[in-house]
């Protein structure tokens, strides 16, 4: 009898934790999104679905924008992270640990602080644009701060390690002799990469996309610090609905909508890519 119970007992601590800090808030939030009222007079559960309709109608632009920013960020991350991961995995040799540490080093500084320091780099007369403008290479009216470019730049910067690490792990697991075998079988370096290295790294890319697209789409710091009113993302809207307007039902409804959209997106992505094949390679 004890043996039968053992696995469940092992699940208990983590299970309770999840129940307390995941399931309970989720249920509370779902209930909040269907309530009516205000902070002063209190909220009553009325099953008011109209909140969802209104929230989506009012903030459709920010929602779509967030998904677009998230998608662009993810694509740029793959492009930026793959060479880094490739270099560390295949040319890092004895410096691998050092290189990985350098990659993670910025994380010892707060997320917000790092994003704020990008302001100094991107500001109109800052270290990047200032000299270029003085030299007459850029018009005085040119600016990056407050544009989508600045926000996406910030997102790419902040999430880079989350894309590099899973790709690195996947590349690291590739037997160099498999690549040699491809070269031996008449594949040029480029073809060997395309037909062997990249397919074998796909599980890493897949994991990287999951780890970056979801948080990047719901991020509210980068747009707040580097963007403007024209780059407002859904995360900012939710934050201000909760903390500024105290409009809990709308904030909850938006949160749920965002979650649903991301879940659908991720599942569609997994289906399209054929998770099974990806996982097969990962499990080898």
């Amino acid at each position: 009898m004890r043996h039968r119970l053992a696995p469940y007992l092992l699940v208990l601590p983590g299970g309770l934790w999840l129940l307390l800090f995941f399931v309970v808030p989720m249920v509370t939030m779902l209930s909040l999104s269907l309530q009516e009222g205000d902070v002063v007079n209190g909220y009553v559960l009325t099953g008011h679905w109209q909140t969802y309709v209104d929230a989506i109608t009012n903030y459709r632009v920010q929602l779509v924008r967030s998904l677009i920013y998230g998608a662009i960020t993810t694509v740029l991350l793959i492009v930026a992270a793959f060479p880094v991961a490739y270099f560390i995995a295949f040319y890092g040799r004895r410096r691998k640990a050092t290189l990985l540490f350098l990659l993670l080093l910025p994380f010892f500084v707060s997320f917000v602080l790092r994003t704020i320091s990008w302001r100094y780099i991107l500001t109109d007369e800052g270290i990047l644009l200032g000299p270029l403008k003085d030299a007459g290479l850029l018009a005085d009216s040119f600016h990056i701060l407050g544009t989508p470019v600045a926000v996406i730049l910030g997102l790419v910067y902040n999430f880079l390690p989350f894309m590099v690490l899973p790709i690195y792990v996947a590349l690291e697991r590739i037997d160099p002799r498999v690549v040699e075998a491809a070269r031996d079988l008449y594949a040029s370096p480029l073809v060997a990469f395309r037909r062997v290295v990249f397919p074998l790294a796909l599980p890493g890319v897949f994991a990287g996309v999951l780890m970056t697209f979801v948080p990047a789409s719901s991020d509210y710091v980068n747009s707040a610090v580097l963007g403007s009113s024209s780059t407002t993302m859904i995360g900012q809207v939710i934050q201000s609905q909760y903390l500024v307007s105290s409009n809990y039902p709308t904030a909850s409804a938006l949160s749920f909508t965002l979650m649903a959209v991301l879940l659908i997106g991720v599942f569609a992505y997994a289906r399209a890519l054929g998770t099974e094949d990806v996982m097969k390679v990962a499990a080898r």
Binding site: D175, V178, E180, A181, R183
Partner: peptide
């Protein structure tokens, strides 16, 4: 001459089959 341009083929110690 690069390996992929040589008309010899190799059987590797651990086979090095393409796992995918």
């Amino acid at each position: 001459v690069a390996p992929h341009k040589r008309d010899v083929n190799m059987v590797f110690q651990s086979y090095a089959l393409f796992p995918h």
